[in-house]
Design a protein around this nucleic acid. Structure first.
Lengths: 308, 308
DNA sequence: TTCATTCTGTCAAGGTTTTGTATAGATAAT
DNA sequence: ATTATCTATACAAAACCTTGACAGAATGAA
């Protein structure tokens, strides 16, 4: 992690997502980060500056005031606590020049060949450059989908599919359990529809929510409504998230209003899952908010609904 | 636990669930917590303030008057008693919850009251003194059993059981994935019998084996024999471990010799599970080695068999 | 029981602080 | 020459502050 002044402000904007004008304002108002200057007076940021900015931005996104986040960052640094290094991956021309298979292909190959240590190694390499949430969306999700397809086509056996998808699910579970400290007091309840045994998407939603600071109460497969209702009374949940992969379980979902008590629109009940993507007409049959056709979209819609 | 004034009131609201207006009122009426101020007069709370607020909120949620809870908090602090970072509500005489006699009781109480943060704290405390393998045998296993009993007696709903057993399973999965580096080349295959969906014991066996340095290929629930056979051909496994919880799935196990090829007694096929403990006569119906009536016994027998 | 009192969460009004973004004119980099 | 970046100022939205008030719940006395 170097202090070497390398990046002009445009790069930093693209890498961190913080607008140029905001970077100007932060340096003017808080002296943070104190970027070096070129001979002509242009700002030059170091790798460490980018790490600092990322750290502050995650705090600010979580609701902390900028001035306080900056103060916290500086007090941490004077205590000698370094920031977690993360690669400015957008800067690297990664992927280009290498006609080699994508990491996703490599992972798929390792898994269907039952090479779990190889898969471990690949995951380790990817984690060095990408966050668990990125990997969830970009790697785990497509890998699970591809495994399902390979099984349907008869290319792999069901045990191979079990081994591989268990492997991927274990990663997801770890990320869901070991996320950053939750930002909010009450957990979002995640459950599969009654009769639904496919929990992959639910796990991914759990990981993404947990990584964004929401605590989650993970109920998993096949949760009957009557006991879901009981839990939702017992814990003050802001939202209940239900998924269904098949048409039958999606149909079962339509019934939730008979079980789960609603007081002034709370708790929020949202639903999603492949059943609704494949057959959009089903979306109208279930009360509540539809999460959209992708995991990422689902998390964003839920966050928007909760924000109100 | 720092007194550094870091958090604006919005963060505190999200983290504690206490509305802004209520925070205003508490400070106005009780001088609690006495938040620091920014240059412009905005409140700034510290980590310790948040701990104080959480402590008070749990009392208030349990029915104590705010004024009394605040007074109690302040008298505690003037007595020099530091604040617990999180609230040991399982220990409180709230509702029917009884004082916990053992860590196992405490964990059980926390889980059936849906207090996942409390369960986390308990697990953390236990991990400070015991290894994951000890906890697996001494705590997780009985906790899972007790949850099952509580559900059968109707003391807890199925969703509570789901939430709690998922919580315990997630711990097991983490320990199974993050063990020390395996010191043998080929993994032991772990699978539930065809039709068997209860994987708790299998997970515990996986943890114990992994902790003893055996690599593990975890197939999980409901693995049909034909594909199990295919995997066992694909990877050079020293042993295949099968479990069945119910009599029907145990009966299905008897069939494995028709599918899994044996060359000179290899791979070793072993079996276990509650079905065989409840009805020992079933042990004779399945070829191969019976693992015994407990998890620990199972691991030891398997290790003895492999040692030869 | 009934009634008065206290406790407590929430709201409204009107003002201040904090922060992101826009603009203009000038200079640097390529 | 064109694009990128600089400083400085301005402005508006969001977040927050204080004061005062009010309604429902809890409490206690009659």
């Amino acid at each position: 992690m170097s202090e070497e002044p390398l990046y002009n402000i445009g790069v930093v904007t693209r890498v961190t997502g913080i607008p140029i004008t905001t970077l100007h304002a932060w340096e003017r108002r808080y002296g943070f980060p104190r970027a070096a200057r070129s001979a002509g007076g242009h700002r030059l940021y170091s790798d460490r500056d980018i790490a600092r900015l990322r750290w502050v931005k995650t705090r600010v996104d979580a609701g902390m005031a900028v001035s306080r986040a900056v103060a916290a960052a500086q007090s941490l640094e004077t205590d000698g606590i370094a920031f977690p290094a993360s690669m400015p991956e957008a800067v690297l021309p990664s992927g280009q020049g290498q006609p080699a298979a994508s990491p996703l292909d490599a992972l798929h190959q390792a898994l269907i060949q039952h090479d779990l240590p190889g898969a471990d190694r690949l995951m380790g390499e990817m984690l060095a450059f990408h966050s668990p949430e990125d990997l969830t969306v970009e790697v785990i999700s497509p890998a699970l989908a591809r495994l399902g397809e390979a099984w349907e086509k008869g290319e792999i056996s069901i045990a191979t599919e079990h081994l591989a998808s268990n492997y991927l699910r274990h990663r997801l579970l770890m990320w869901m359990v070991t996320g950053p400290n939750p930002n909010r007091p009450d957990p979002i309840i995640l459950a599969c529809a009654p009769g639904e045994w496919h929990e992959g998407s639910l796990l991914m939603l759990g990981v993404l929510l947990r990584r964004r600071g929401y605590p989650v109460a993970y109920l998993g497969q096949d949760v009957p409504f009557h006991s879901l209702a009981e839990i939702s009374r017992a814990i003050q949940s802001p939202a209940i998230l239900l998924v269904a992969m098949r048409a039958e379980t999606a149909a079962a979902l339509a019934d939730w209003t008979r079980w789960i008590p609603q007081v002034g629109g709370k708790p929020l009940v949202v639903f999603g899952g492949r059943a609704f993507t494949v057959n959009p007409a089903l979306q109208q049959t279930v009360p509540g908010h539809y999460l959209g056709d992708s995991i990422l979209q689902g998390v964003e819609r839920l966050e928007a609904l909760l924000g109100k």
